[in-house]
């Protein structure tokens, strides 16, 4: 993994300082970092810890506890496939297999060309029109393997 450059560190510090005054600041700050950089780099841990006056272990513990914080850069787009029960009832297991085969990667991986990351997700609240996927922040319903191909091409 490459070390983030000076500018990235400055961004992290700026976001941490901007969010530090609020109560329970750590999650909002981590979200702000991930929104801006696409992930929470390892180098963010000591900076955020210093700004919030927490130990590195505490900050690291929080980053690693939550499934949706990622510590490596994502692809250009992220495909989230819903793995939860309502989607299972409408064929999401097949859709998951199709997504993996099509992209040639497993969960938490990114395609070699950097176009897509693949992540599991447990319910998008679109369960009346299962199976569902989300690409970045756009949700799609009743997604067949053919429809997924269209969405990814």
């Amino acid at each position: 993994m490459t070390e983030p450059d000076r500018q990235t560190r400055q961004t992290i510090r700026r976001l941490a300082e901007a969010g530090a005054a609020q109560a329970g600041a750590l999650l909002p700050i981590l979200h702000a970092i991930q929104d801006e950089l696409g992930y929470v780099p390892d180098a963010a841990v000591p900076i955020v810890a210093e700004v919030l006056n927490l130990s590195r272990a505490e900050v690291h513990g929080v980053v690693s506890f939550y499934h949706l914080f990622r510590t490596d850069p994502p692809g250009k787009q992220t495909l989230y496939v819903c793995r939860a029960e309502a989607c299972q009832s409408m064929g999401s297991r097949e859709l998951e297999r199709h997504a993996r085969d099509k992209l040639g990667i497993g969960y938490h991986e990114t395609t070699a060309d950097g176009r897509f990351s693949l992540e599991p997700i447990y319910c998008l609240g679109n369960c009346a029109c299962s199976p569902a996927v989300m690409i970045d922040e756009d949700v799609y319903g009743r997604v067949t393997p053919e429809r997924l191909d269209e969405l990814l091409d």
Partner: peptide, 25 residues
């Protein structure tokens, strides 16, 4: 508004409070 981060357990109320305080759930 506070945004969660994808942990089912944080729907449990005491875990949610920990999360709102900026900690692990």
């Amino acid at each position: 508004v506070r945004e969660a981060a994808g942990a089912y357990i944080c729907g449990e109320e005491t875990s949610m409070l920990e999360s709102l305080e900026g900690k692990r759930g």
